[in-house]
Simulated scan of single mutants.
Amino acid sequence: MTLDYFSAFLIGILGAGHCIGMCGGISSMLTAAVKQHSRKSFYFVAAYNIGRIFTYSFLGLIAGFTGSLGIKALGLPVISLKFIAGFFLILLGLYIGQWLFWLNRVEKLGRTLWQKLQPISKHLLPIDSTPKALGLGMLWGWLPCGLIYSTLTWSIAAGNAIDGMAIMFFFGVGTLPALLTVSLGFQTITVLFKKLWVRRLIALGLICYGVFTLNVAYQLLF
């Protein structure tokens, strides 16, 4: 499972530009809060990201448990789930590179739930306390996102709840560098991640890793 943890961490790192695009709004609000409450800036940023990673880990727990049910009750082979994970990783690369937008359809599946959760954020704004930052992070972890959904397929393929949770935890840790740069106001790095050529370079990395994953799953079959 160590390779799966590293893979999830790598997906989080490579998806940096997408993270900034999806969470740019909340990161801007967090930046404003940091500037207004400079003494508490570290606590706000830390609490938000702890909340976000907690939700990712919880989703991974559910996904891993679901995968275990599929393996035990339906007799789904673990290798088939690995193939699905690799396939979704390739779709993610095509999506981030703006070559193919099939993951938009997957994101739409989560929008119904998000529409019910999003109004809760009104009670957490403005961000003027650590508990509010924590709550907003936990809420934002439910944001419909192709990057999250693609990584969740790795949690499903893990075949058990604990490994599924750990995979999403390491994914969340991988997203930290990108979102910390935005939250703390490092605009140069933020602008760089938003450039199309950078996004496409990252996308190619994800696609290559997806192909590698498919090859590993294929080798395990024979």
Rank of each mutant, 00 (worst) to 15 (best):
F6K: 12
F6Y: 13
S7M: 12
L10P: 00
L10K: 11
I11V: 14
A16P: 05
G17T: 11
H18P: 03
G21L: 13
G21P: 01
V34F: 02
H37M: 01
H37W: 05
H37N: 05
S38F: 01
R39K: 06
K40F: 02
F42S: 10
F42A: 12
Y43V: 03
V45H: 04
V45I: 12
A46Q: 05
A46G: 02
A47W: 06
N49Q: 14
N49T: 04
I50W: 02
I53G: 08
I53W: 07
F54Q: 09
F54R: 05
T55C: 13
T55D: 11
Y56D: 08
S57A: 15
S57C: 13
S57N: 09
G60T: 12
L61C: 08
L61V: 00
I62W: 05
A63F: 11
G64D: 00
G64C: 05
G64S: 05
T66N: 05
G67T: 11
S68T: 05
S68N: 10
L69T: 07
L69H: 04
G70K: 02
G75L: 04
G75M: 14
G75K: 09
I79K: 15
L81I: 06
K82C: 00
K82I: 01
F83Y: 15
I84M: 07
F87T: 14
F88C: 10
I90Q: 08
I90G: 10
I90W: 07
L91T: 02
L91I: 07
L92P: 11
G93I: 01
L94R: 06
Y95E: 07
I96C: 09
I96D: 07
Q98F: 05
W99S: 07
L100N: 11
L100Q: 14
W102R: 06
L103V: 07
R105L: 12
R105S: 13
V106C: 08
E107A: 03
K108Y: 04
